[in-house]
Design a protein around this nucleic acid. Structure first.
Lengths: 281, 281
DNA sequence: GGGAATATGAAATAATAATTCCAATCCATA
DNA sequence: TATGGATTGGAATTATTATTTCATATTCCC
């Protein structure tokens, strides 16, 4: 043995590419197949992989041995490890990144942390979103005259994006902003024929809660996006979604909330378009 | 057989959680282990998994059979398929989802589309972000008296989040909003001792470009987040980032931009904190 | 073109892993 | 507390899969 055995996928890949020219035909064939279909190597049996690649199982083993492994099985470990890595819970990565950032490991670590927090949140909501709630919420919003959008502080960016998207889709909407202190008046215009999208996470902005309470007492149905069933928003809402956003460096991600918000918005647009002919006539 | 066999991981997971209460002790033990360590199930052998979970291999097989599989092997397929899925390029998934949404496959497909678009964008920026630019941008912003934040329309939510985060971090900042039409005056206050974060994507909001031009002519350094080197913002900027956001149903994701924006913001906070003693004294 | 070294195919063999079976144990119920 | 049914442990069996072997083919020098 004149060499170290590649223990991780990237090294292995580099080694293979490096020797590509010098490999015998069939071995090169399996080498190419391995780089093109790493998942198959990870999961398949020697026989099945060999068949897919159009070689004999023994060739596959020779390939592994040529790379310094003692057999196909240990080569396969590297491919499996790769999947594990790639897949290793974002939560763990996030944990590691938080530690790294705390230790002052540069700004790239901070950036990676935010990316990981966003990814975690997206994974999470993807798993937990209740489809029936989504349908209910869209149905409710689609028949509203005006959609009011209510969110402050940290959640405000989501509200402003919803308002932008609704505008683009030509859906009448009103963002309840606090700039001029006219919120109470704005809220007073809402009727049961309208609807509200309200967004708030712990610690809940008091103004959001208060306005949600008032508006629900006027009989206006509310779709809420919040973070737990104990949220005061949940009790005012006709339909509510629980969204758990991962946080990093003290700032929670908005990615999951954004995705849900956009799905609601575009969903409403779709629903109106397909139901439009009847009503608008 | 009184039931359908779960063919995908999510269904399987739901089935397991559903029956958790009614399962015999050892079976419940392996069930919990399976949900906690899905990767181990995907790659391990019946014997190794059983050992890790503290049960007999036969129990593992009974577990599988109880769920309707005909053995451990077919149960394992589901866990392997999950890894394959998770790992299969988000781009391909996005493609499929777009088609599905176009075909009117319900609102869940729309939601999945936005999640996939966000994930794709995050993956992408994670790969392509230039670390040196990040350092430069943070250095530039950290020494600014006031950070001006400039973005309209689609990018406005990002700007508002930046402003919120800067405020939280006690960093003086000014969001250039258009509400009262006083932008020109606001912009006129900026000096070369300040800095700007400007965000704009094609089709570039004319107001953003115009204000960026004016402010750069006043000698105020600009950090830009935009989508190509041809962007008019890029030419006014001292440092600029290229961010490619995937789009779905006509709306581009903001997740990558958000992650970058947060990294800049928190990065500036960090830098100020570590340099603070010198300057503030 | 001849011959040695190398590469390949196919089947035999060895290893490993899944499954089955049965005795022992646990648990609920009368 | 006895009894039947369900559950569990552990070894025996069966199936599957990796590896080895050897005969055959190919390639590369001289």
């Amino acid at each position: 043995m004149d060499e170290l055995v590649p223990r991780d996928f990237e090294t292995l890949r580099a080694t293979i590419l490096d020797r590509r020219e010098t490999l015998p035909k069939r071995i090169a064939q399996i080498a190419a197949y391995a780089l093109d279909n790493p998942d198959d190597i990870a999961f398949g049996t020697a026989a099945s992989i060999a068949a897919s690649a159009g070689v004999q199982p023994s060739t596959l083993i020779r390939f592994a041995q040529q790379l310094g492994f003692d057999g196909f099985t240990s080569l396969q470990q590297v491919f499996r490890e790769r999947l594990r890595e790639r897949n290793s819970s974002y939560d763990e990565r996030l944990q590691a990144l938080r530690a790294k950032a705390d230790a002052g490991a540069g700004h790239r670590a901070i950036f990676d942390g935010f990316v990981a927090a966003a990814s975690t949140s997206l994974n999470d909501i993807s798993r937990t979103l209740d489809e029936a709630h989504l349908e209910d919420a869209i149905a409710l919003l689609a028949k509203a005259d005006t959609i009011y959008v209510l969110a402050k502080r940290r959640s405000y960016p989501v509200a402003s994006y919803i308002a932008y998207a609704l505008g683009k889709l030509k859906i009448r909407n009103q963002l309840i902003e606090s700039a001029a202190g006219l919120n109470a008046e704005m809220v007073a215009f809402a009727t049961p024929a309208d609807a509200v999208i309200a967004i708030s996470f712990s610690p809940y902005a008091p103004a959001t809660i208060e306005e949600a309470r008032i508006i629900s007492e006027q009989g206006v149905p509310i779709v809420a996006i919040t973070d737990s069933s104990f949220s005061p928003l949940a009790q005012f809402a006709k339909v509510w979604f629980e969204v758990a956003e991962a946080d990093f460096a003290g700032f929670r991600s908005l990615s999951a909330t954004m995705a849900l918000a956009m799905a609601l918005t575009v969903g409403v647009g779709e629903k109106r378009r397909s139901a439009g002919k009847k009503r608008k006539a």
